[in-house]
Structures are given as C-alpha cells and as structure tokens.
Design a protein around this nucleic acid. Structure first.
Lengths: 252, 252
DNA sequence: ATGCCATTTTGGTACGACCAAATCAAGTCC
DNA sequence: GGACTTGATTTGGTCGTACCAAAATGGCAT
C-alpha cells in the first residue's frame, strides 16, 4: 500500500483566508481568490513572475493539479500572462486586460457577418458620443492632439500602411477625451477585433484621401464647437467605410 | 515495467484539423479550437451537454489532464457552463456571454472606487447616447414599452425592492432601442456589476419618488423628440444617483 | 405509475513519473 | 577579465492511475 488512503479531510483548509464564503465547491477557486488578492494588494506586483508551481503547492498545500488549474484560470482571466514554457507574469487588472480577455469569443463571433455589424455599429454609436463631447468640452490639449494626429494622417495619404496607423491614432485621440480609462481600452479592443476585416481592402490611396477629408471635417466641427456637425461628419465617415467593407465582402 | 516509456511522439497529431496553424505549442489549445468549431458549426448545439471527459480523451486521444484543461478554458471563456459536479453545458457565444465572462475581473476592479466611477461614468455616456437616439428615432413600440415600464415604475414606488426591478427595466428599454444585441447585453452587465454597490442604500421611498420623476422627465423628453432635453434629464438623473452612492460610501 | 435504494458514471483531486524547453552554474577560450 | 560554450538543475507540460463523492441510472418494491 504505497498510496495513502486519504479517507476524508481532503481539504485541510488553507491557513490564509479561512472564509468559506460563497464557495460552491471547487478547490482551485480558493487559490485563485487568494492569488487575486495578492495581486490586488500588491504583494504580487505587476510584471512579477508567479512562484513556480511546486512552491505554490507547498504554500497552499494542494496538489499540482489544483495549482495548475488555478493558474490556468488566472491566465484565462487575463490576470497573468502565461506563455508556453515560461513562468506566468502578473498583469495588474485593468479595463484593457478585461477587454482583451474576451478577444477569443469576440473573434469567434466576428466570423458571422452579424457579429461584425453589431460591433461596428456599436463603435459608431460610441464615437458619435465621443465627437459630441469633444465638440462641447475638448480642452486645448485634446484639440492640439487632434490637430497633430490630423497632420500625421495627411502626411501618410500615399502610404496605406502608415495611413491606417494614423487613422487609428486620430480616432484614438477621440477616445482619450473623456479621461475615462475605459475608452482607450475600448478603442484598442475595437481596433484589434475589427481590423482583420479592414485590412483586406483599404489599399487604395483613393479611400485614404476620402478618409482624410472626413477626419478633417470632424476636426473642424469640433473646433467650431458644433456637436451636431461633428456627429454628422463622423456618421458619414464611418458609414461610408462600412459600405466599403460590405462591398469588399460581397455580402449584398 | 508497468509504465510505458513514451520516448517521443508525445503528440500523435489528431486526425481532425491537421492545420498546425499559429499553434505555439499548447496541446489543449488544439482541443479548444476543435470544440469551438463544433459549437460554431452546430455540431454541438446550444444547451447540449459536452461528452464526458473520458469519451473526449478517446476522441482526441489525449490525456484527461489535457481534456480537462481544455474544458476549463472553454468554461472560462464562457462557451460552456461548468457547474461544480455536472456536465458542462454548451452555450452558443453571444455578446452577453462575452460580457459575463469578464465579470470576474470587473468585480475585482469594482473594489476600487475608481473602478466603479469609471464604469458608472461609461454607463452615463452610453445612456446619454441612448436617450438621444430614443428621442430622435424611437418607434411606436419602443415608446409604448417605455410608457409601460414607466407605469410599472410608478406603481412600485412604495416597494423599494420592486422599484429597483422596474427601474432596471425602464433603463433596459432604452438599451433595446438601437436594435443592436450588444446593448441589452451591456445593460445586464452594467446591472450585474454595479448593483452590489447600489443595494446598500436605495431603501428610502424618498429616492424612489425622485427617481420616478426623473424617469418621467426622460420619457416626456423622448415623447417630445427633444434629444437635448432627454440627455439633460438623464444626466441629472444618473448624476444625482451617483452622488447618493458616493455619500453612502463615505468617500467624500 | 411512483418512490426509494443499489449500482454505475462522471467530475474533482491526488500522486508520481517523465520529457523538453529554460534557466543556471561552471568551465573554457579569446 | 569578459564573452561563449556546455553540462546540471529547474520548471512547465503531459501522461497514467487511483480514489472519493456527487450525479445519474436502473431496478425493485409499494
């Protein structure tokens, strides 16, 4: 009998956080919560490597199975970054982290036309509000950033690759106006999720010119503090882009 | 020698989906992708139970470890619902699924007042756009739904529990106006994430009365197709609610 | 048919082993 | 002496087996 017959008391109740809480039953969950706590409390600073699994199993007196399940959960939540053969790296949670952790499902849904459509329309909705706000309350700095981004955009009209980047940057400024960390995160998420469907076209300097003009119109409306005009210009801009994508996709 | 010495060829390359693709190295990932595919293709219909892990390990000729890792990943992505001791249930991916799968991280962030603040302000931002749209383009049906929700809301003024529900429902109608599935999903997400911070107060019929009046103002502005008035009323409504929460939280 | 109990599944966890990539520690060469 | 190569040691990834406890199942009695 070389294997202990652990008849009962399989879970020796870790010393830390003895609260059974709402725990339904999973064992790894407790570990997950504790590690979450350590990340939140700063005991595990951002960018730090998690202790090796063997150490963790000591600390929590749990089997490696459970430890690795916990780590996997953490990873899929985006709280740690787990590259194939490396130690998981702690990533302090932020809205960007949260958003990127849904990337998987979203990409799945992006395979349906309706998914892209819903997402893109939601983007239009957001940016409509954004430009309105910019028109009514953008500060000097935002205006300057917009102006600069616009200049970069103009300079890149001939180079579609660079143009795309400056295009993104211009819209990015809009997302920074509210000063709410959610919006920049949302912006990069939109770009990540939608860009695969854009790159397939968007190679004609023709369009670049059009898009630049649209950006300029938006900028001007913001300068003139005219929310309605800004919103209208943005709608024209994004709607026409949508038409292009739709055509490229030959889904009448 | 009762344990085979698998010297090499640890991964016998599953027959299905032989594309190595961008696979970095994880083994469970392949399984995950295949199951995702089956869900997407309908081979695994919504609400269906996943085959038992032992069957899956046959099918993919992988160890249970890998299988269960894959299932866990699927679960944390929200593609399957894995209750403690039950078979995982397939859930066709939707924006609601995606949103709810980030609930974990978001709740973590909600422990910081800055998190609650960012999230709540983003909600105000969204609803501002929503009421504007409702004012300009709400159809007969939406107006009717709004009216009905408003009536329910009024009838529940005395019962704080019921009032909260009708409050949520009223705002919910707003989220249904664009006809974009993202918004209803977003609404329930907001409610889920924010409500824990609301329940602590919101027990005074005093506030209920105020809130009902605000809802009525919004409704009226929408009826009169006045986006600016609707937006203003909404801002007053949500801002005052925010003040209450802040006070309740004694974070002066 | 209905309800209860014994049996079989099935998920949750544990333990130990082993491979391969990474990391670390010497030792070597310029 | 410092940069480079090499061998030993970690450490993550997988596999296999075993066992428990909760579910699901099937059969029997009422």
């Amino acid at each position: 009998m070389d294997r202990p017959n652990y008849s009962a008391e399989t879970r020796p109740a870790p010393s830390e956080d003895p609260a059974p809480g709402p725990s339904g039953g999973r064992a790894a969950d407790a570990i997950v919560r504790q590690i979450q706590g350590r990340i939140l409390s700063g005991a595990l600073p951002d960018k730090a490597a998690l202790p090796p699994e063997r150490k963790l199993m000591e600390e929590f007196s749990a089997s490696r199975t459970v430890i690795r399940e916990a780590v996997a959960a953490l990873a899929s939540q985006g709280l740690v970054e787990a590259r194939p053969r490396h130690r998981p790296i702690v990533r302090r949670p932020g809205f960007d982290t949260a958003l990127s952790s849904v990337g998987g499902i979203i990409s799945m849904m992006m395979q349906q036309r309706s998914g892209v459509e819903s997402l893109y329309f939601s983007r239009i909705f957001i940016e409509r509000g954004l430009v309105r706000d910019a028109a009514t309350s953008a500060g000097r700095d935002h205006i300057a950033a917009l102006k600069s981004a616009l200049a970069d955009n103009k300079a890149a009209i001939e180079d579609s690759g660079a143009f795309y980047a400056t295009d993104v940057a211009f819209h990015g400024v809009l997302y920074s106006v509210p000063g709410n960390p959610i919006f920049p995160a949302l912006h990069t998420a939109y770009v990540d999720w939608l860009s695969p469907h854009w790159n397939k076209m968007m190679s004609q300097p023709e369009r670049n010119k059009l898009n630049y003009a649209a950006h300029e119109a938006i900028y001007r409306a913001i300068l003139e503090r005219d929310p309605d005009a800004a919103e209208a210009a943005l709608i024209r801009h994004l709607d026409s882009a949508w038409q292009d994508v739709r055509n490229t996709f030959e889904l009448g």
